[in-house]
């Protein structure tokens, strides 16, 4: 006799509660698998849109090193080097802003703040992460733009510095949360041992806690970089979108994401221009995917040692 699902006589009964339980289990596992399904579907979609062009007519060497991005000129040029360089510059500035800010916040919340102040700070920082990126873009366009012109006496306020500061502020909250987790993972016995040896508060943090939390802190930076790399609309509004590799933070620059956002809407479906934008999307995906993988590896490495 083949037992019906869950029909271990005497233990389970096929009543309403059993079916509700079963339905919940199916829903939860579907939810779990759906993330993987979506990611695979997205990769397949992006790849399929750009494949024909990437296979037949695209020069990868030109795409990755070419200096001119002129997809609508005659003849068109598909050199995305200025976009890659712009993305790298803006992300670098964003990290210069976000790393000190988020690490300082994490150290304060994790090591110094206590009680309600600590809870209050954590909630505020998490709220900061919920500000929509288009709002950050408007701040860059309307607030930071004239401020940068004034403070640094530059003719243009929409530049690498503007976009980098905006992105840094956007990435800081999530980095703070991750960095604080990394600090919390350092066992208290370490701190107690150091203090017993006569170390001051700062010596404990600087010599014991931070070195031990390094893999987790690196992972938080990498995830922040991934966030900055992939951000679109705020950068489109704040960067000035100039198709030259920047040579200083006061130069305007264009990023991969902003280019896709600005051009995809008007590109004729299945044209070379349309397809090359999907290839750019694939490049972006490859970069952020490897960054996230690296971050994941770092966190796992720490867990194994701990």
């Amino acid at each position: 006799m083949v037992p019906a699902p869950g029909s271990h006589q005497g233990l389970d009964r096929l009543d309403g509660a059993w079916w509700r339980d079963w339905a919940a289990r199916v829903l939860v596992s579907l939810g779990g698998i759906s993330a993987i399904l979506f990611i695979v579907a997205i990769i397949v979609f992006i790849a399929s849109q750009g494949l024909e062009f990437a296979w037949n007519r695209l020069s990868w060497a030109e795409l990755l090193t070419g200096a001119r991005w002129e997809p609508t000129a005659n003849p068109p040029r598909y050199g995305a080097w200025p976009l890659l360089a712009g993305t790298a510059w803006i992300t670098a500035v964003a990290m210069l802003v976000a790393v000190p800010l988020s690490f300082a916040a994490a150290i304060y919340i994790g090591e110094f703040a206590t009680g309600s102040r600590r809870e209050w700070l954590k909630v505020t920082i998490e709220t900061l992460a919920a500000i929509p990126s288009v709002v950050w873009g408007v701040i860059g366009l309307q607030v930071l733009n004239p401020l940068i012109q004034q403070w640094f006496d530059t003719p243009v306020g929409l530049n690498v510095l503007n976009a980098g500061v905006i992105l840094g502020l956007m990435a800081a909250p999530i980095m703070t949360t991750l960095a604080e987790d990394a600090l919390k993972a350092v066992p208290d016995t370490y701190r107690e041992a150091a203090e017993a040896l006569g170390a001051t508060r700062w010596q404990v943090i600087w010599r014991v806690v931070l070195p031990h939390a390094r893999p987790g802190l690196s992972a938080s930076v990498l995830l922040g970089i991934g966030r900055a790399f992939g951000e679109t609309i705020a950068v489109l509004m704040a960067s000035g979108h100039r198709l030259l590799p920047p040579t200083s933070v006061f130069d305007s620059a264009a990023t991969i994401t902003a280019t896709i956002a600005a051009e995809l809407g008007e590109a004729a479906v299945d044209s070379d221009h349309y397809q090359v934008l999907f290839v750019l999307g694939l490049v972006l995906f490859a970069i952020t995917f490897s960054i996230n993988l690296l971050a994941d590896g770092l966190v796992r490495g720490r867990r194994r040692r701990a």
């Binding site: 001119r68 200025p82 929409l158 979108h241 100039r242 030259l244 264009a254």
Partner: peptide, 14 residues
């Protein structure tokens, strides 16, 4: 004409 190209220094606003 169609063969014309802009300076790369241009900012390209949306």
């Amino acid at each position: 004409g169609a063969k014309g190209r802009f300076k790369l220094e241009c900012m390209n606003l949306n």
